[in-house]
Design a protein around this nucleic acid. Structure first.
Lengths: 336, 336
DNA sequence: TTGTAGGCGTTATCAA
DNA sequence: TTGATAACGCCTACAA
């Protein structure tokens, strides 16, 4: 392995000079000397050792991405990789390595995160997945270790976070349904103990209020505690209303469809399903001709930026909400 | 930051002794001394600096996972994360960090890989994704840098690889169709320039031969060069046969469904679709009541094992094929 | 059984 | 403008 010393010797200069040439500073180097050094670097095909560099600089140039619940049903969404793409993009752009962490041993999450922060392997942490207890998040945030939470928020403002604007998204969705003439719109959401559970419900209410439609509490089904998927009883209850639903907003499109099928409802008997998350594009023709899009790539990018700010001592504004958009598929609409 | 020297001083021993205690060798340490050291480690909440360790040991304890074409349509499969889960599991189990690499700059792949191997950031490389040119793979393999290719193989036997057994999978699928009475089974595959394109076709042929069914070349549609998705002309051609298909094997379920819809075929008019990759479980009730399952988690695990062997100088057997399985969904069958 | 000291490859401070 | 050298924190051969 060729080292900086080899270059120095070969070029007839000191290691310091070589370092200054390679790092463009912090000191000026005579143009001629500089040329000579660069030539030798070329000739010997020299590449500085990043490990030695890290030891000297006392930083890892790595950020960790902890995926909580990689097996959860929401992770099987084909769009989950979008967050990761955004993160990876931003990390590579800014010269950081991305470490993938999955807690496969199912260690208690707080201990797991603490262990990571102390491991000295990364100098920042990104968190993706809703199955992380709020206390664990607070603990890390207050320890001063740079950390950013993606795709949701917590009550503790010390926890820096960035997500899509769930409220505005749910508002857009509800409004779109209302504008198409739907009036009995069900809401099948996540527990209100999650920020996005509350935010979506708020968006739903907001749209109803704007159109001066009555709010019927019986149309709203949210579980008391976290649940991954609505069960058949929950859906049956919504369908059993005397005055039936004509549409349903849900964060679990695929489960709802499945349950509808189990109940023997064909597509005409079913309420129109409107997914609160991106649905499969190729399903667009079986559902409402518009879908919500969350800027997942951008959220990933933004999270990295916020993390780097945090690392450099600044406190980025938080929580950040990036707007969702309504994508019109009506030109693809063609029933098979 | 507390260092090994602090521990040594506090415990009244040398740094060497502390190191031996912490690493369980390579030298024995007196039990009492050992206890004392461990106590101090506890008391000062000491964690060895992995960067310093790596510099000293001259290894990174990292493996890289290069995802080629994270935006390709095949990556949007909800099952893609399964490979990553398996890899991450095995990496964490064996004390390795996993670096996620995505070549977001779309650099020429061979230069990209070469740069990675020389970067000194990882001491092994895993490759996932079909859009990597064979020459790039060969170049790295012959450079001696440990590398394992996942989910496909190449002609160059120096390229170590592990994948599902595409041939056996296609065989199982074809046989299942035949046993259900299907006779005109179309085959819509990937270009034969890819190993799995050939393997699947071989499995299809094998099953037909076993049941002494004639091989009708017109039922087989494979593009000359790589293509991400079958286009409408390709599908139209298959459907235009005088004696129509009653089933179709395809590696692109969602595109084919979409195209069928575009052509205005309802589910009765369509040939039965049998996906050669795992299909969405919740679609299982609209399709043939069995699906192929590829052991993606296990492939990820196996790839890491092979990489570690390679790193330690052994040459693992290659190519490795892990068997696919046929999953019966008939008990869920219930048309909506 | 234990301690000393040199080395891993950089960076950056202090002299020159 | 440059060189010498002390960190950075750990591992381990050699000496005791």
């Amino acid at each position: 392995m060729t080292t900086i010393r080899d270059i120095a010797r070969e070029a007839g200069v000191s290691v310091a000079t070589v370092s200054y040439v390679l790092n463009d500073g912090p000191r000026q180097v005579n143009a001629e000397t500089r040329q000579r050094v660069l030539q030798v670097v070329q000739a010997l095909n020299y590449h500085p050792n990043p490990i030695a560099r890290r030891l000297s600089l006392q930083r890892t140039e790595c950020i960790g991405l902890a995926l909580a619940g990689l097996t959860d049903s929401n992770f099987s969404s084909p769009f989950y990789l979008e967050y990761i793409r955004g993160i990876s993009f931003a990390a590579e752009s800014s010269g950081y390595n991305l470490l993938l962490l999955t807690n496969y041993k199912r260690e208690d999450f707080q201990s797991y995160l603490l262990r990571l922060t102390r491991s000295g392997q990364m100098d920042g942490l990104l968190l993706l997945g809703s199955s992380i207890p709020d206390e664990a998040l607070s603990a890390i945030a207050h320890s001063g270790f740079p950390m950013v939470l993606l795709a949701r928020h917590t009550a503790d403002s010390a926890v820096i976070s960035v997500s899509q604007d769930y409220q505005q998204g749910a508002y857009l969705a509800t409004r779109a349904l209302i504008e198409q003439g739907y009036r009995r719109i069900g809401f099948l959401g996540q527990s209100l103990q999650f920020s996005y559970g509350q935010e979506r419900l708020a968006g739903y209410r907001q749209a109803l209020a704007e159109f001066q439609l009555p709010l019927d509490e019986r149309l709203i089904s949210v579980p008391a505690t976290r649940r991954d998927d609505p069960d058949i009883a929950e859906i049956r209850a919504l369908l059993a209303l005397s005055s039936p639903l004509d549409a349903i907003l849900t964060d679990r499109e695929r489960t709802v469809r499945q349950q509808f099928n189990e109940l023997g409802l064909n597509s005409v008997q079913q309420p129109t399903i409107f997914p609160l998350e991106d649905s499969d594009p190729w399903l667009a023709n079986e559902t409402f001709p518009a879908t919500l899009h969350a800027p997942k790539f951008e959220i990933g990018k933004k999270a990295v930026e916020m993390l780097l700010q945090l690392k450099s001592g600044e406190t980025p504004p938080s929580p950040v909400f990036l707007p969702m958009t309504l994508i019109d598929h009506s030109n693809h609409l063609q029933k098979g």
